[in-house]
Simulated scan of single mutants.
Amino acid sequence: MTSTAPRVVAVAADPATETESTTRRRVLELVASTGPVTAGDLAERLGLTPAGVRRHLALLEEDGKIAVRRVLPGRGQARRGRPARAYVVTSGGQSELQGGYGELAAQVLRHLRAAGGSAAVAAFADERYDALVERYAPRLTATDVSERAEQLAALLSADGYAASVRPGPATLVPAAQLCQGHCPVQHVAEEFGELCEAEARAFARLLGTHVQRLATIAGGAHACVTNLPLAQPPATTTTPTPEPAGRTTRH
């Protein structure tokens, strides 16, 4: 992985025909998909002025839809040496993106759990993500894990997950991170973790590699983050312990 920015392309709309609420929605969606993100980055992606974007960000922050997270070292500085304000979506913002079906779905799963126990909920979650694997698998044509992850992110984004692939931390084993800035089933997954577990297993099947879920929106993070190892860990060699002097090895 050579780029440190998520590969998300935002198409600028015509400011003359776009309403204030539509623009604010686009800002919220892009914060969800690329956050933590600064006003300058958003303005460039959306084709808007930085001042206009900051106005929308201020209103979204006032409404509790987004929150400020300071930029990490190395991501750039604002003027006069101040850290740039980087934004992430909040639980309230996720709720707005999700729509009003979360509580109905939760009620259905509560009824299922009452009738069949936790095993019934787990079976439902597996069946749901089996269908996702069946739908996505034929469209993942790359053999390289990182390229398959990019294809998977594109499919997830088309289904409303605001997904991107970002470089993983610098370790002995190179890795990428599949990030989902939006979870359409967030409020249901907060109560039924079986959904998150089944999704991670589906990703492992689709990518053909072990995956590790590092964070979830349902667990309070601003994004779901799944670590994807891109290579096998280096083999370790052991040095045989020398026999003590005078001891004869019996065969």
Rank of each mutant, 00 (worst) to 15 (best):
S3T: 14
T23Y: 11
S21T: 13
T34Y: 03
L42M: 01
V53G: 01
D130T: 10
L72M: 09
R24L: 11
E96G: 05
F124T: 14
A123F: 09
Y87L: 06
R82E: 06
E134G: 10
T19E: 05
G64H: 03
A106S: 12
A131Y: 09
G74M: 09
P83T: 12
V89N: 05
V37T: 04
A39H: 08
D63N: 11
S3A: 13
A123N: 12
L48T: 00
P15Q: 08
L109R: 04
V27R: 02
K65T: 04
G76F: 03
A120N: 02
A16K: 10
A58S: 10
A123V: 05
S118Y: 08
V108C: 06
P15G: 06
G116I: 08
L104Q: 10
R24T: 14
T49P: 00
G117N: 09
E61T: 13
A122W: 03
D14M: 07
V31H: 13
A123W: 11
A16F: 07
A114W: 10
R128L: 15
E18D: 04
T2C: 05
T4F: 14
L104P: 00
T19Q: 12
G93R: 09
G100L: 13
T19N: 06
P50A: 00
L46S: 01
H56M: 01
S21E: 15
A51P: 00
L57S: 04
A43H: 05
D14V: 06
S118R: 15
A43P: 01
E44Q: 10
G117F: 12
